[in-house]
Computed example of a mutant assay.
Amino acid sequence: MSSSFKDAMDGTAWEDYCEKILRIHYGVRSFTSVPHADRGDHGLEFFANDGTLFQCYFPDPSCSMEDYKLRVKKKINDDLNKLIKNESGISLLLDGLVITQWLLLIPSVRSKDLISYCNAKTKSFLKKAPSFINKNNFKVRIESDDAYPLEKHKARILIESTIDFPVREITQEEKDQWKSINTNFHDNLIRKCGKIAPSPDAMVDSLIGDYLVLEDLIVAYREEFPELHKEISEMVAANLSILKTNAFFSKEDPAELVMDLLKKNRANVSSLRQKISMQNSEKFSIGFVSKWIAECKMDFILS
């Protein structure tokens, strides 16, 4: 694996990359990803039906060898202690699965001392190991993505490929149906677009189409790429919050405010680690603006 590919990562990107590798390796029936909100508390990120607990760690690539070894050893020690401390919660997650190895995945194993340290930790950990550990067959191990040569290349292709869900053409019949069902939202669009655009009727019609396309994309991304969907939603929501706060201190033309928000959405969506197509990116950017205008979240621009 090219070092530049991994050097450009941070801890979150490394974790996402490792998850892709392991999902490819094990398949959906034999692999479980612990939700992000709980990972740090329990000291594990993933587990597999072959009895492996996984943790990921991305040490600072620029640190010295001595500092590197200290950091990795601390990570191993701290997370093994979390297994003991959180025995009951982890047992519920594992649901009877017996664990035979705990594996730390790092970008590269830079010292044989870390292998020796894992051997020593295996012996000391087994003296106080929680009930879900196989005390007769258990190892603490450290590996890099090189342990999965085929899977790592497939994972990189997934990361570097561009996601592009087809965007369908919204018919006038669908727009008219939306107007009849969402009369309040439609009234909001008419009222606000009258303040924003020189041709409000055309803008209303366009934004209804963008709203409906966004709903399609949200469903597709939420089902296929839930973490990416969450990342996009949080980014654009933050943009709206920033714009609303700024509006308390300076009065701008409503059209300029909306354009500023659209630019921020475009910039954030285009900066995602996972590439998405230009068409999907644009539809997310304008789609969220249309959703906010329709659903009364941008009244501040008219005040």
Rank of each mutant, 00 (worst) to 15 (best):
N81W: 09
I115Y: 11
K74I: 00
L104T: 04
E87D: 09
L103F: 06
K74H: 08
L103M: 15
T100V: 03
I76E: 08
Q101R: 15
I99H: 04
L93E: 13
L94G: 07
L104W: 13
T100S: 10
I99E: 09
E87Q: 14
L80M: 09
I115F: 11
L94M: 08
K112Q: 13
L114D: 05
L92G: 05
D78P: 02
K82Q: 12
K75Y: 05
L103E: 14
L80K: 04
E87H: 05
I115T: 15
N77G: 01
I84S: 04
S108W: 12
D95M: 03
K82L: 15
L114E: 02
N86P: 01
I76Q: 08
G89E: 12
D113M: 00
K85R: 13
S111L: 04
S108A: 13
L83A: 07
I106P: 04
K75L: 05
N77C: 03
R110A: 13
L80P: 01
N77S: 14
L92W: 05
S91E: 14
L105G: 02
D95Y: 06
L94V: 09
N86R: 14
I90A: 01
D95E: 11
I84E: 11
N86A: 06
N86M: 09
L93N: 04
T100Q: 07
V109T: 07
I84K: 11
L103S: 12
K85E: 14
N81C: 06
D113Q: 09
G96V: 00
L93D: 11
V109G: 05
K112H: 12
V98S: 12
S88W: 03
S88L: 07
V98Q: 13
K75V: 09
I90R: 00
Q101E: 15
N81F: 10
G96W: 01
K112Y: 10
P107R: 00
K112V: 13
L104Q: 07
L92Q: 14
K74A: 09
D113A: 07
I90E: 02
I106C: 09
T100E: 06
N86V: 04
L92I: 12
K74V: 00
L103N: 13
I115V: 15
R110Q: 15
K85M: 07
I106N: 12
D78E: 15
L93A: 06
I84Y: 11
L105M: 15
D78A: 12
V109H: 06
S108V: 14
D78K: 13
D113L: 02
K75W: 09
K74W: 01
V109D: 08
N81I: 05
K85L: 10
E87P: 00
L94T: 05
Q101W: 07
S88V: 12
I90D: 03
Q101H: 13
N86I: 04
P107Y: 03
V109E: 09
D95H: 10
P107V: 06
S91L: 03
V72A: 06
G96C: 02
I76F: 12
S91K: 11
L97K: 12
V109N: 06
V72H: 05
P107E: 03
I106Y: 15
S88A: 13
L80E: 01
V72I: 15
D79F: 10
L83V: 08
S91P: 00
V109S: 06
K73N: 08
L104C: 11
K85P: 00
I76A: 09
T100K: 12
L92Y: 11
R110Y: 10
G89I: 05
